[in-house]
Design a protein around this nucleic acid. Structure first.
Lengths: 100, 100
DNA sequence: AATATATATCGACTTTTCCCGATATACCAA
DNA sequence: TTGGTATATCGGGAAAAGTCGATATATATT
């Protein structure tokens, strides 16, 4: 994934918020709180409700974040759970410290 | 300056390159090398030549970077010199480490 | 004052992004 | 297999960004 695509993914208020919410999923998505919730992530519907945009928009935003390696997805049954991708975010941090 | 504007400023190949060039001005702009060059920065014309886009585009790009606090400008005679803004970049680094 | 040079701003056109509703797909349950 | 729910994809209209050439402004030189 190239650097410009990463920054484009971050250049949107809602997508930044989602990433920020996923940093503390238990606090930000109390409705979905359950056992392996921290491991698996948060499902699209919960994120959509919180963001207040349409389902299609949020689905697309999540895939933009995923293509930028900022989140990862796991399908379980009819749900897709998204969570923060620590590695991708660390890589971004390194880009900023070494190239900017 | 809000976070989205910072990431928008970075969401462009040429602007990322400029920032990267300004990290090592002596290497990247040998034509302008002179005494206080490291302190004052690089003038618009040099950046424009290296980027290969029009003068107006580069002038605008530099002001986008400046509004995002990623570079700072100094006018000296008819030249405007731009340089990396260390503080702004550090602030960005902190945002990534604390909020993403 | 007239001219030259560097940069900034303006107006326009093209491409990309934002965001939606509609529809398709995948999975589940009866 | 029929219907229900979650998510993804598609098509499109509006807004923003990319980029240019033309022009304006600021400064320097003669």
């Amino acid at each position: 994934m190239n650097q410009v695509e990463i920054f484009k993914a971050l250049a949107n208020k809602t997508r930044l918020q989602i990433l920020n919410w996923l940093k503390e999923p238990a606090e930000n998505f109390p409705d979905q709180a359950n056992a392996d919730f921290e491991n698996i992530g948060v499902c699209v519907g919960q994120i959509q409700i919180k963001a207040g945009l349409s389902q299609s928009t949020i689905s697309e935003y999540l895939s933009i974040l995923q293509r930028a390696d900022l989140v990862s997805a796991t399908r379980v049954g009819q749900w897709t759970y998204y969570k923060r991708n620590k590695e991708g975010i660390e890589k971004l941090s390194k880009i900023i410290n070494s190239e900017l």
